[in-house]
Design a protein around this nucleic acid. Structure first.
Lengths: 105, 105
DNA sequence: GTCATCCGCAACCACGGGGTTGCAGATATC
DNA sequence: GATATCTGCAACCCCGTGGTTGCGGATGAC
């Protein structure tokens, strides 16, 4: 399962959107979704495998936190593909290719 | 089927990569893949539905051409999600949000 | 200690989608 | 006109996966 496949599911994208506003547990997230806690938990497990999320256990609950780095990889691929067809994507590609160290957050 | 789902399949991504180097027909593409022509044709049909590709019939063959606009939409979503977690993604989001008219090549 | 939560694991189901093969239609080529 | 390509449509198979339910194990509250 790669990043694109992880982003393919609408529920998963919504989970990501929620996590973008702050860390949360599986049950908290499941409360705002029409699916069961187990389903959300599965999605979070997938997102964790791909690296889009990190899980930290605190007592009896585990908080999930967004990790946007894989998104940059995906965007890099897209920018590279579209670079020779779209000037703005070419500009984005140059931007993404430029390595920096003071990255995430 | 949305753009992310379209990008989820590795074969489809490879097709897109090939089309980035120039238009091609289904049979031409199938020649460089381990799958049948029909499979490639299906993928091209999907990519057409999503808008990542346009098909133009010339005589008895149909050429497929890349159309990178949907990629920008996808990148825009990702940038928006990661914006509050990553400064560079925030910069990209500002860049993608800026509307222009002299777009796709 | 007892009870209530929160969680993960496992089994199970249903559906979609990637792949194949086969065939019929349309277009160049001779 | 006869033939060879190029294509699209349809039927079919199989496996991955999103979803469910049920259960048992940890942890916190009383």
């Amino acid at each position: 399962m790669d990043v694109f496949a992880a982003l393919a599911d609408p529920t998963r994208r919504e989970v990501i959107r929620c996590l973008a506003e702050g860390p949360a547990t599986a049950t908290e997230l499941a409360a705002q979704f029409p699916v069961s806690r187990q389903a959300v938990s599965k999605h979070l497990g997938l997102l964790d495998e791909v690296g889009l999320v990190v899980a930290t256990r605190e007592g009896r609950e585990t908080r999930y936190q967004l990790r946007p780095e894989p998104l940059r990889d995906a965007m890099s691929w897209m920018a590279a593909v579209g670079a020779r067809w779209d000037d703005r994507l070419a500009a984005l590609q140059r931007m993404l290719a430029r390595p920096r160290r003071e990255d995430s957050r």
